[in-house]
Design a protein around this nucleic acid. Structure first.
Length: 268
DNA sequence: AAGTTAATCAACCGCAAAGTA
DNA sequence: ATACTTTGCGGTTGATTAACT
């Protein structure tokens, strides 16, 4: 049974204001690929007219960007990619497109989905009123306490190094602030490998195998921040960085925001 | 084997920024 | 300068698949 027929059977391919919706058929994909081959990317709203597709521009663009683009990397996120995602998320927050720019062949949607599933997986460890869960929660709490002690120890050992790095970060933050002041638009800063190396070598950047990375998840506040409250602009990110510096030098874990940004401590 | 739950992913929506007439 | 259109982004939803009971 073809996709088109199935779509008919199950009510997919809903038509809203004249546009088709729902899963794409192979035929539609073909038309879109052909359109891009001939006309190039962009002008998505003319796709319907020029390609004979009954899809709106947004839908076409999304399909192309997230699925049909020839340079897309298929398959699982590698551990290396994961470490980059973690590091950049700690640095940028939910700026998926910015993060995606540093991972060739990966889409913002893919990274977002990846993060959210991992994120969710780890926050689900929180206890509820089930007794079995309570036992697990106690165990978890003890483990977390031990981990915290371990982290604290490591932090103390690395405090000197952190201070050096913080000085470096402060300089960088100030220069970025200068930059953003003079050049307000297009301030996206793609991932810069040498920067990571600098910070990594300075603070003995941790191995990013899944277990160790997982250690940090439970500290994250439950909700993925909404568009209104997240660090959605350059200055916010930078000031969050400053929050971090305060936190390292002063009290630990005072607020959820601080807890969240403890995440970035090993990385910057 | 059947039912339930969790994980994953494609696609949609609303909003805001950028571009254009 | 302004209104309108297009594009891009992040959040969310719903369908499908896998794992578990």
């Amino acid at each position: 049974m073809s996709w088109a027929v199935m779509a008919g059977h199950f009510g997919w391919g809903l038509v809203d204001e004249g546009w088709r919706k729902g899963p794409w058929t192979a035929e539609e994909d073909k038309l879109l690929i052909e359109y891009v081959r001939v006309h190039g990317e962009g002008r998505w709203n003319s796709v319907a007219r020029l390609a004979g597709l009954n899809r709106n521009g947004k839908s076409c663009r999304l399909r192309w960007v997230n699925y049909l683009r020839p340079d897309l990397k298929r398959g699982q996120i590698t551990p290396h990619e994961e470490s980059i995602i973690l590091e950049l998320h700690a640095r940028w927050g939910n700026r998926w497109s910015t993060i995606a720019r540093s991972l060739p062949g990966r889409t913002d949607n893919e990274i977002k989905n990846y993060w959210r599933t991992r994120f969710k997986k780890n926050t689900k460890l929180s206890p509820d009123n089930n007794s079995d869960h309570k036992t697990k929660a106690r165990l978890l709490k003890r483990q977390q306490f031990q981990q915290q002690q371990l982290l604290l120890q490591q932090q103390q050992q690395q405090e000197q190094e952190h201070l050096q790095v913080n000085q470096f970060d402060m300089k960088r933050i100030m220069s970025l602030l200068d930059e953003t002041e003079h050049k307000p638009s297009s301030s996206e800063l793609p991932y810069v490998p040498q920067l990571r190396q600098e910070t990594a070598t300075a603070v003995s950047y941790p191995n990013t195998n899944e277990q160790q990375v997982g250690l940090f998840y439970p500290m994250i506040d439950g909700n993925a921040s909404g568009s209104g409250s997240d660090s959605s602009n350059e200055a916010d990110v930078l000031w969050d960085g400053l929050w971090n510096l305060d936190d390292i030098n002063g009290n630990l874990g005072a607020t959820s925001k601080v807890s969240l940004h403890n995440l970035s401590i090993p990385y910057c």
